[in-house]
Design a protein around this nucleic acid. Structure first.
Lengths: 377, 377
DNA sequence: CTGAAAGCGCTAACAC
DNA sequence: GTGTTAGCGCTTTCAG
């Protein structure tokens, strides 16, 4: 069935196309009466204005591109959801593009986006500087980086792009304070290979700094409070080795920099006879939905993706209005759950220290409530 | 910076716009020489044709809508990924819309899609018949349903929409056969409330039928091999009750109809001192990425989302070409992992029965390889 | 308050 | 082979 056009409506309502247009947009001068009649006809004909034709004049396509590495990753899916809903509130459509961190695919996708004359873009920058994103920038399209700080490219271009990401400090500080209060003195960070990622490098650096605020938590034997794991996907051998190292160090609590490592190691720890939250306390970055579903539920340092989505959209809107916009770091938040308990052989931890933000057994609402992480009061 | 238009290119190349158009589309007669020159200029100007203007003629927008309940759900995210990549191979853009199973939101989103004159749509039908989707149908837009069979609405409209979904039979049959071979005789299905979902109802029905093929597996005490769980999100109490019921029944193996229930129950079972794969064998529907990461890894009945995406796209393409397209049910596949082991107190299960499709500790490749589930030879 | 007409960027006849 | 021209469906002056 062919689409009804504005002419069809005009004809049927006995008016001209410009009158219909005015009725559609509440613009210009139009009498209440004709407006109602036109609206009536629009209903009858199930007329939907062609947004393509429309946007060719307005210079606004009402569409925003969202470039992420992989939609299958829970974290990015949450982010996409949040961004999309926030944009929808502003009558903007989100074009979700999964670039797989592959430059060629990025090129194709950005080409598509340019062809549609998107009004703006929200981009998770890939590890290496991206020529595709530069193209957006050169075209003068407002861009906001999200989640990762891009490696400063040699071209000054990216210099003026606002970044919205998470500051690991607040979350790590609370987590370490809580672990300390629970009597833990030997806390180990488990991180991925640091070369790959600024994010991981920063977490590591901040972890060390925050740990050093407690003199009794420094480890006299090992200078190095962190353990690096390669990217080999969770070999059992690797996790077994990990368990051995922890035992040798006398570690009573671990913080995982990458949620995936935490998931993989969990079973190994339990298989080794450790009860998580009793024999070993465990905290992971990223508040994945699954972490609150598992038993024991896993304490996390939340990146607050919902807020990140909302804030990045707000930043983009500002840019789109031609206003200035600055980079912003969101606080991470420590959420205590069952996986953290008092250190074995310690009398501490019966009560949490005042001021520690703790949500015992915090549960995440999954359906329908974007903000339902329970983080915000 | 303003976009370069086809006129800019024409002017600069010293030709007319139609010549540029021909160079762009390799259509009509054009000399090699001028074509190269035009291409040259296009490069220089970084010219990108305006797909909106373009599509106003061709009657094709090269865009397809994908309507899913929630992108945050791993299962749908996987599906979206698969669909999007498959469509991209055919130079079609995917407009991912998360409808939250809310009719009003569906209305808005479908309105947007109509406004863009999408060439087709792939839709996960919501439990109740959707007026929004009917609107697409009335407009004559090719639609394919995916994953769920829609409740037959009173309007004949939806009758002619092909459905691509998963047939639980093959997977359940293999799973039950494997469990039987492992010595399990008391197998229980754990399902959600059946009223909500045709899918769950069917799984339940097929489970009973497949179970009855083994005379020694029927349960003399309980007529009812299934346990229904409400939707209360994983209350500890509920899971504890579940454990008690299983013990009382003498169940040695469980099959979860909903992956979420499996995740929630896992910890409770382990907390009760059961070793999964030894004291209790466990199979879940849906091959979520996490299931292969956990220790023990979880045996699953895979819906083969990758294939489902590919097949639904193929079906849609057929429809878009005006050809007939039929509904299709994909086989589900049982993938054995560590969570299934021999029944306690049974001598069986040392070897798997011949012909049973088994992938011990099957691991899912997450990055970069759409087809990397390891299901396809 | 309403209508006629120009044009957004592109494609597709039709001429030359 | 290439240029001219008429639209696609809409918004937006500019007259009435």
């Amino acid at each position: 069935m062919a689409y009804a056009t504005i002419r069809d409506v005009a004809r049927r309502a006995g008016v001209s196309v410009s009158t219909v247009s005015r009725a559609l947009n509440d613009s210009g001068r139009i009498s209440q009466e004709t407006r109602d009649r036109v609206r009536q006809v629009i209903e009858e004909l199930q007329y939907v204005p062609d947004s393509r034709a429309r946007s060719m004049h307005s210079l606004h396509s009402q569409a925003v591109g969202l470039l992420i590495p992989d939609i299958r990753n829970s974290y990015f899916a949450d982010l996409a959801y949040s961004v999309q809903h926030e944009l929808l509130r502003h009558d903007l459509q989100t074009l979700i593009c999964t670039a797989d961190d592959r430059p060629d695919q990025e090129r194709t996708l950005v080409g598509n986006l340019l062809g549609q004359h998107i009004d703006g873009a929200i981009v998770v920058p890939s590890p290496s500087p991206s020529p595709a994103v530069d193209r957006l920038l050169r075209q003068g399209i407002p861009v906001v980086y999200i989640d990762r700080t891009p490696s400063a490219g040699p071209d000054g271009q990216t210099g003026r792009v606002p970044v919205v990401d998470a500051d690991p400090r607040s979350g790590l500080r609370s987590a370490i304070a809580d672990l300390h209060a629970q009597g833990h003195r030997r806390v180990t960070l488990i991180t991925g290979s640091l070369e790959d990622s600024d994010t991981l490098r920063e977490r590591r650096r901040v972890f060390e700094r925050e740990l050093s605020r407690f003199p009794d938590m420094s480890d006299p034997q090992t200078q190095d409070p962190g353990i690096r794991l390669g990217w080999e996907p969770g070999s059992t051998a690797r996790n077994a080795r990990l368990a051995a190292v922890l035992k040798e160090r006398g570690t009573t609590a671990v913080v995982f920099s990458r949620s995936q490592d935490a998931i993989e190691a969990l079973g190994t720890f339990q298989g080794a006879g450790w009860v998580i939250g009793r024999d070993l306390s465990l905290v992971s970055f990223d508040d994945l939905p699954i972490f609150s579903l598992l038993t024991p539920s896993i304490s996390v340092i939340s990146q607050q993706v919902d807020r990140m989505g909302a804030v990045s959209v707000a930043t983009l809107l500002r840019l789109m209005k031609g206003e200035e916009a600055r980079s912003l770091r969101l606080e991470t938040r420590y959420i205590r759950r069952q996986s953290v308990g008092p250190s074995p052989g310690s009398a501490a931890g019966v009560t949490a220290p005042p001021g520690t933000p703790v949500l015992p057994n915090g549960r995440r609402v999954c359906k329908g409530q974007p903000g339902g992480t329970g983080n915000d009061p």
